[in-house]
Write a protein that binds this DNA or RNA. Structure first.
Length: 384
DNA sequence: AAGATTTGACCGAA
DNA sequence: TTCGGTCAAATCTT
């Protein structure tokens, strides 16, 4: 059946290698189509005039990054929004480029004997590049609201370089700014979802910044923000409160998506088999301490933890930001219904939400109107 | 010493 | 005026 030159060991290696290759190839293709859809949508919304100004804008950014005042920009939020859109598009294009490189790398892998270490390293670098593009894009999108109220806003922007300490020194009067609050609330309302769990632990580093007794509630509510709020401008936050009927369970409200990237976790996410990572957790120091204080154990953490996606916003669709982004990416099925489940049986994981990569864990169906001509896309990409 | 938590005060919304 | 969310000085933990 096979030529004699095929030894059993090389056949064995081949049988292991091919499924991996197939998996990574599919993954790269998925990433590419994601970038393609987002880029096309964003570019379609970009006014022609703005596109012409793109080059000029790049020079501006090169000259003085964030924090530099440009005459005329401050007074026109629309111009600022265009700048943001352009930045998002640039990030997406950068990520798409990296995804193409990754795909090419996986399509034409160098021989295993040649340089195994360098091959996997470059693939990881590319993957990190892609994730960074996602994070940067989300970060820019998240800061759109603030820039609209630039005149009142003293909040630290992701790239302003201002430290948390200097922020602390701000006068109390500087905390006023109703525009920002209202704006934040509106944007947060669409990025809020609730989880009822027997543990407060998830795969993110949170820092507690407040606790309050709530009217007619037995238990206080704790307020957490992402540890990377100041160093990476991550706006994710959560509120934790014990449920009234069952004090063993926690009512957790997640507000906003993580735009931070945890260097320790990112590569692991990519290489870990979803099946094997179910139930695995990355212990978060603060929360473990809280768990210890409240005499809670994580033994009862299971896949049975209910992840409720509630419609806190106006939409009747699940408000999980990740699902929203999936929807924008065109992952809905032909019936117009979201192709995402409303209950996540994965137990405690916020990683995939944070990185906007839920589609990796879901069975994404591409039937419907969506079709992705990979070869055509690659050809056009190479031509460009 | 650095970073995290606690907790009283402040702020805006209702 | 009340309430929920946030801030930041004080305190605690590592």
């Amino acid at each position: 059946m096979f030529p004699r030159s095929f030894s059993s060991s090389s056949l064995f290696r081949l049988s292991i290698y091919i499924p991996f290759l197939y998996f990574f190839h599919s993954f790269a293709a998925l990433l590419l189509c994601t970038f393609e859809i987002i880029s096309r949508n964003s570019l379609a919304n970009l006014p022609e005039k703005a596109r012409r100004e793109r080059e000029r804008e790049r020079e501006r950014e090169r000259a003085g990054r964030m924090g530099t005042d440009w005459p005329g920009e401050e007074g026109s939020p629309s111009a600022s929004a265009v700048v943001k859109t352009k930045r998002v598009v640039e990030e997406l294009l950068r990520g798409r480029c990296a995804a193409i490189q990754l795909q090419l790398l996986l399509q034409n892998p160098p021989s295993r004997d040649a340089s195994d270490g360098s091959r996997s390293l470059s693939a990881e670098e590319l993957a990190e590049k892609i994730l960074r593009s996602f994070a940067e894009g989300l970060s820019v999108l998240g800061s759109c609201c603030e820039s609209a109220s630039a005149g009142h806003d003293h909040q630290v922007s992701p790239s302003s370089g201002e430290s948390g300490d200097s922020k602390r020194r701000l006068n109390l009067k500087d905390r006023s700014g109703c525009h920002k609050r209202r704006c934040d609330q509106e944007s947060k309302a669409s990025q809020t979802w609730i989880k009822v769990s027997s543990t407060t632990q998830d795969n993110h580093a949170w820092r507690k910044y407040g606790q309050k007794m709530i009217l007619n509630a037995k238990h206080p509510r704790s307020y957490f923000r992402c540890t990377h709020k100041y160093d990476q401008g991550c706006k994710a936050a959560k509120q934790v409160q014990r449920t009234e009927d069952d004090p063993e369970k926690f009512h957790i409200t997640y507000i906003g998506v993580h735009t931070c990237r945890d260097i320790m976790k990112t590569p692991r996410m990519l290489i870990t088999d979803p099946d094997t990572c179910v139930g695995e957790s990355f212990p978060i120091k603060q929360e473990l301490r809280e768990e210890a204080r409240s005499d809670q154990t994580n033994d009862n953490v299971s896949s049975a933890d209910l992840f409720l996606i509630t419609a806190l916003g106006s939409s009747d669709q699940p408000n999980d930001p990740a699902s929203v982004s999936s929807e924008r990416m065109g992952f809905d099925n032909a019936n117009g219904e979201p192709a995402v489940p409303t209950v996540y049986p994965f137990g405690d994981d916020a990683d995939s939400h944070a990185l906007g990569m839920d589609f990796l864990r879901r069975s994404v169906s591409f039937d419907g109107d969506f079709s992705f001509d990979e070869s055509e896309f690659l050809a056009s990409e190479v031509g460009a």
